[in-house]
Amino acid sequence: MLHHKASPVRSWRAAAPGAAVALAGAAVFPLALGSTYVTSVAMQVEILMCLALGLNFVVGYAGMLDLGFAAFFAIGSYTSGLLAVDAHWPVLATLPVAVAASLLGAVFIGTPTLRLRSDYLAVVTLGFGEIIQNIVNNLNQTGGPEGIYGIPPLSVGPLTITSTTGYYYVFFVLVVLFVAVSYRARRSRLGRAWLAIREDEDTAYAMGIKVRRYKLYAYMAGSVLGAVTGTFYGSAFVAIAPPSFGFNESLLVVMAVSMGGMGSIWGALLGAGAVVAFPEVFRQFAQARLLVFGVALVLVMVLRPQGIWPEEGLRLGRLKQSARRATRQLTHWASARLGAR
């Protein structure tokens, strides 16, 4: 007899207790620890979480490999930064313009290219990312290699946010917001159309889904999240420069999404955490830390190719099974070693 259980993360109710604990923990975290270093690392995690949730629309939901996601992060950051510094706009007021600019970029590059199948699309998006980085690196108006500095802090009403802890909470709100948007989209007609396209494009067509248009929607959704993140990023760091928006950044975001588990919201969050935390934790290895990071990455991909927290749920039963198997092998190995001595 077949025995199937509903996966544990499909409904809010099942995920609620875990989510509540994580949320509460993250909310009091900087107050409890109080170290600026830890808070700033945590903020970097949040920024990558935001970007990963954005890319998740493209890669995770619609199944298109995008290797130039940092382009939208850059468009958002630069549009907002330029308006705030040169035109003295309040940062919050630059947000709609940054989003519009990013959407324009998405439509401009997406319309002719999204019909391409995965590998070709990856090449095109990679090129787009490089082009944007090169433009901001070479244009006088964007400050060339030096970028833009003196970006004013974010002020909301009477509140002006200047501290790292302050921005930790700004991005905290953003992460929560993005999770809510991702969740809503995933369970809507839109999300189902995206997943249908990811699973089988030709068949999705037969359901009446306008495949090309929906792919563009996914790309646009991702670009919006990227641009919003970019807008606040400028304020948080006061200065922005081209190196923050290169292929490396795009790759980190792809890594966060694929390590966490493509299409999975919790996976994107965990993946972002892992991608930032691994190199930080391995600081003691000094020169070798990126090597250790690489090895850790390969291990995750070998042991859990579907990601740390895959879309179809953790399937704790399976996790327990593999843990038991690993323990057994370890004991075996250890007793053999000890016996030999």
Binding site: S188, R189, L195, E199, M207, G208
Partner: peptide
């Protein structure tokens, strides 16, 4: 047989209702 393998049965059926849902 071309289904959406990593979607649940229910989601597969719902994807078929794409044109009946408003958005």
């Amino acid at each position: 047989v071309r289904l959406f393998p990593r979607l649940t049965s229910r989601e597969n059926v719902l994807a078929g209702a794409h044109l009946r849902a408003t958005s």
